[in-house]
């Protein structure tokens, strides 16, 4: 279990991301799961630093990460005023594709299995199951040279359940 309060600093946040990712790799999470955790954690930290704390170095970002054998739970809290996540436009809509920002929450929802905010909107909690893979890898399986499925702690398909886009976020479809 990692629990840290870090300054509003992107480089410090990146190093903390690497530390958490190191735990996930040590626990046997595969590259897809590690990619998902890294991306979602970076997006949560970017939001906390940029939109929450507004790059104010006197403010802190609190991060907790519990990397378990089967799932990882990460919480990121900033000291900002919070926001309403349902008010963020869908960045995958045609009219928003050319916007250079606004993808963070969508990515967290796409790559993690659970994403939830507190009422104030300054705390996000994310859960990743070890074997849920990447969003668009649903149903795919890897056939190795032997033609047989590799043994996997996650079962023959390598998945415990299908990943999904926008799982949590009514009004964001």
């Amino acid at each position: 279990m990692i629990q840290k309060s870090i300054p509003t600093d992107l480089e410090v946040a990146r190093r903390l991301t690497e530390e958490i990712l190191g735990q996930a790799r040590a626990a046997g999470y595969d590259e897809d799961a590690c990619f998902a955790i890294r991306l979602s954690l970076e997006e949560a930290l970017i939001n906390a630093i940029k939109h929450g704390n507004k790059f104010d170095r006197s403010r802190k970002v609190s991060v907790s990460a519990d990397v378990g054998a089967d799932l990882t739970t990460i919480t990121v809290i900033d000291e900002g005023d919070g926001f309403d996540p349902s008010s963020v436009p869908d960045p995958t809509a045609d009219e928003n594709l050319e916007k250079p920002f606004g993808r963070g929450i969508m990515l967290m929802r796409a790559y993690m299995d659970e994403v939830g905010y507190n009422d104030r909107g300054n705390k996000v909690r994310m859960v990743k199951h070890r074997c849920s893979g990447l969003p668009t890898s649903v149903g795919q399986s890897t056939v190795h040279s032997s033609g047989a499925e590799p043994e996997s702690p996650c079962g023959p398909s390598g998945k415990t359940e299908p990943a999904r886009h926008f799982r949590h976020g009514p009004g964001r479809q």
Binding site: D94, M106, L107, P135, T136, S137
Partner: peptide, 15 residues
């Protein structure tokens, strides 16, 4: 592959 899937997830393959 992981980045390609990210581009597809965000629909940036349209751009």
């Amino acid at each position: 592959q992981s980045v390609r899937e990210l581009l597809e997830t965000t629909r940036l393959t349209k751009l």
